[in-house]
Design a protein around this nucleic acid. Sequence first.
DNA 1: GGACGTTTCTATG
DNA 2: CATAGAAACGTCC
Length: 170
Amino acid sequence: MKIKPASLPTRLPVATTAGDFIAEYTGQGLSGLSFPRRTGAKSDLAETKVPLPEIRRWHVLTTKAVKAALAGKPLPPLPPLDLARGSAFQQSVWRKLQQIAAGRTQSYGEVAAAIGRPKATRAVGTACGANPIPLLVPCHRVLAARGGLGGFTAGLDWKRLLLEREGSLP
DNA sequence: GGACGTTTCTATG
DNA sequence: CATAGAAACGTCC
């Protein structure tokens, strides 16, 4: 009987000084990344299956990228991202977010204009919230127009911390 | 229909 | 200038 591990995503911990992130992989690439429950928390991943070689290769890249992001540095090359579960609108937003360099920020309205939907600012906020790969798809670099932070699904403390490390916090 | 990780425009003082 | 109300967008409950 052949092993068929590809149907469900593979989950692997990413150990950092800030705690353990959880990376999630499909056959197409990195499909999700979740923050530690609290700053410094370790993962509760009991099952440590041996992942496919390809995924292990991706995970090395993910780990490096997460550490760079936490340090506020530009991201190294990423593994392929599997964003297929997002709508066309969401994917266009997420793609745009990746073009915001470390140390730069944009408002929800600017992102909306950049994807050709100037009036969809609020929908951009919703799309950011639905981002499956925060941190590496830098939704934390999207702020409210008038100096406000906006929101952050994983907690505003994270958003503040990341922006501070990138030198973007006024 | 209502609510959201918003923005922008229109009144009114 | 400050404040208030309303409209607009995409997604989920």
